[in-house]
Amino acid sequence: MFIWEDKEVRFDIPFTEMRLRSGEKIIDCLEDIEDTKGNAGDRGRLVVTNLRILWHSITSPRINLTIGFNCILSINTKEVNSRVNSTAKTLHMLTMSNKTRFEFIFTNLVPGSTRLVTVSGVHRAYLSSKLYREIKLRGALVQNKQLKILPLEHVYTTVDGVWNLSSDQGSLGTFIVTNVRCAWFASMNEGFNISLPHIQIISIIIRDSKFGPALVITSSEESGGYVLGFRLDSEENMSKLYKEITVIHTTTNNNPIYGVEYKLSALSNEEQNSDILQDAEVIEDPKGEITNTIAAYLAEGVNKSDRPIYSLELGLAVESIKNGFTIQKLWEVIPPTN
Rank of each mutant, 00 (worst) to 15 (best):
M96F: 12
G288E: 07
N253W: 09
R124K: 15
S60A: 15
V177D: 08
E319V: 06
Y226L: 14
L116A: 05
S82L: 11
E24Q: 01
D160C: 14
K329L: 15
L264N: 15
V48C: 07
T49A: 07
F106D: 03
N254W: 10
D32F: 01
T49W: 00
L152P: 08
V122K: 00
R115E: 04
P256A: 08
A295K: 06
V180N: 10
I204Y: 00
K136E: 01
T16W: 03
M96I: 11
T326Q: 04
E289L: 05
V159A: 15
I334C: 06
G139N: 08
G121F: 04
Q146T: 14
D35K: 05
M1Q: 13
M96Q: 09
M96W: 05
N164T: 04
Q328I: 04
N76I: 01
G44I: 10
I327C: 08
V227L: 13
S97T: 10
Q272I: 13
G170M: 09
V48K: 08
K243A: 09
W163Y: 08
D6I: 00
T114A: 01
F185R: 13
K25S: 13
T251R: 07
N303C: 10
H56I: 02
E271M: 08
D275M: 11
I217V: 15
Y242A: 13
N50W: 04
K78C: 10
W163A: 05
A280T: 11
I26S: 10
K89N: 06
R231F: 04
S268Y: 00
L137P: 07
T246N: 04
S129K: 04
L165R: 12
M18S: 01
G259L: 08
Y242S: 14
Y132H: 14
N39Y: 05
S166Q: 13
G191R: 00
L267A: 07
Q169E: 03
I75A: 11
Y132V: 12
P336Y: 02
I63R: 07
V117E: 04
E319Q: 12
Q272N: 11
D35F: 03
N50L: 02
V117T: 09
I33K: 00
P213G: 07
N237V: 15
A88E: 03
T178A: 12
D168P: 08
I309Y: 03
R115M: 06
V117P: 01
E134T: 10
F211W: 15
G173T: 02
A214P: 11
S22H: 12
I217T: 11
W163T: 03
G23E: 06
I257P: 11
K99V: 09
M96A: 10
I201T: 08
R124H: 15
E332D: 12
K25P: 10
T337E: 10
P151T: 01
E271F: 03
Q328S: 13
E235I: 13
S86A: 12
K89I: 02
V260M: 10
K287E: 07
G139D: 06
M18N: 00
N189C: 02
E244C: 05
V260P: 14
L298Y: 05
T174A: 15
S268D: 04
A214Y: 05
F102M: 03
R62F: 08
S171Y: 09
D6K: 02
I202E: 13
D306H: 14
F102P: 00
N81F: 02
N85D: 14
Y262M: 12
Y156W: 02
S113R: 07
T49C: 07
G225E: 09
T90D: 00
I204N: 05
N81Y: 02
P111M: 00
P336T: 09
